[in-house]
Design a binder for these strands. Structure first.
Lengths: 228, 228
DNA sequence: CACGATGTACACTCACCAGTGCACTTCACG
DNA sequence: CGTGAAGTGCACTGGTGAGTGTACATCGTG
């Protein structure tokens, strides 16, 4: 029944799409072990046999779903570095995008599902790392550009990056992920990001529009005294 | 068989302890749904019936285990505020204790299990919040004392607290929890905490031993301009 | 029309698991 | 010794779930 002559054609099958949609919904809702193939078939309004004709096993289906969800992360808008604009505004824009992405319902559920799967099948660890890395690409390149331009003094990029993310995630991500708290409103997000940017720039760069102050040097020396 | 005359005595039963030990191990290892009562009985070298004689259901057993694990969190040492010691050293001590606790193997596994349970049974959300709150008691009281003493300027305690935790957790907690990374070594922990303390104090207080500088005022005004 | 690809309905295997019922042993204590 | 609490071994119910085998329906294309 499975046509090995037309593997490409089967990718477009409407039934297959229905299965994928249903499976996505159900896996995100109930996790891996909390979702049965029977239920997926039901929701997709497709016979169980059809599900198995497209995906040889539950694991395969699960993997396909996760990969598809991961690709959505790529759609995040990219903010480049500008020589003229105040750092605060630029970093704030990056931070807000970051915060919006990680508080997105799909992303949140994806994380929960992966974590729960991870407990029983540690080989799934890599997925989280992949998602992780993607989210930081923008921040990383911006920081690099900014340092090259001499407007920030960053002794350790990895550390700075992680700190910035931590300043945001601890507010808007983890409480929702772990404790099921209501997602942060957009104004809450903005406040949190603003504050994170403030803390970050106070430590790693020059304050807003105050001309290069003595304090800047002090901070830099503090930051530099313990390189990676 | 279940003696309603001697409920207290049954708490001490060696068999009961064996069940608890085995269940703890298995739940932490395989999560709730990945652990069967048969297996617990097996590991505890006890008949399945005995398990059920002590705990009426799997949920009850699970709950008992989680509660027991939560109590271990209380054993964290408490560091009070000292008027004379440098803030850096004091905060660093608190940070290290915090980092050590959350990277502890038991705590880590506890979190994973609760998260995975939480997906299918949202009523478990509260547990995470409880653990959360406990961990911050020390930090909170220290910050309060420190602000009362005029050595820190904190416009929003919740925010400051969360930021400090975020600066640490993003390094030593989440990567291990979500991606199964190796736990941080004690020297890594120290570095991370040192840096977090540095960032935190640069923003919220006076730098190390440099006498009150102009920069401090700037920072305070920045921080104050957007109260909770 | 005929063919092959896709999908369906349904019954079935095999395994696992929560929880129960019961007859039996063991052992401490009065 | 007798009693009763604690524990055991085992078969059993009832349910769920992954994955399969098969005969049949549908439908587009040559």
């Amino acid at each position: 029944m499975i046509a090995n002559q037309t593997p490409a054609a089967r990718r477009k099958s409407p039934k297959r799409k229905a299965v994928i949609r249903a499976a996505t919904e159900e896996f995100l809702q109930g996790g891996f072990s909390g979702t049965s193939m029977d239920r997926i078939a039901d929701v997709a309004q497709v016979s169980k046999r059809t599900v198995y004709n497209h995906f040889p096993s539950k694991d395969d289906l699960f993997q396909a779903i996760i990969e598809e969800l991961l690709q959505r992360t790529d759609e995040m808008p990219f903010h480049g570095y500008s020589k003229d604009e105040p750092l605060e505004d630029q970093l704030e824009r990056i931070g807000v995008t970051f915060a919006e992405t990680i508080t997105g319902e799909d992303f949140m559920k994806l994380c929960r599902v992966v974590v729960s799967r991870f407990i029983q099948a540690p080989e799934w660890a890599g997925v989280t790392l992949t998602a992780y890395a993607k989210l930081r690409v923008n921040l990383r390149s911006w920081l690099k550009a900014c340092e090259d331009d001499g407007r920030l003094q960053i002794p350790d990029f990895d550390r700075a990056e992680t700190q910035f993310c931590g300043l945001i995630k601890e507010f808007v991500f983890w409480p929702e992920l772990m404790a099921g708290q209501e997602p942060a409103s957009s104004s809450e997000r903005n406040t949190v990001v603003k504050s994170a940017v403030d803390v970050f720039l106070t430590y790693y760069g020059a304050p807003t529009d105050v001309s290069t102050s003595a304090s800047s040097d002090e901070r830099v020396s503090l930051a530099a005294q313990e390189g990676s």
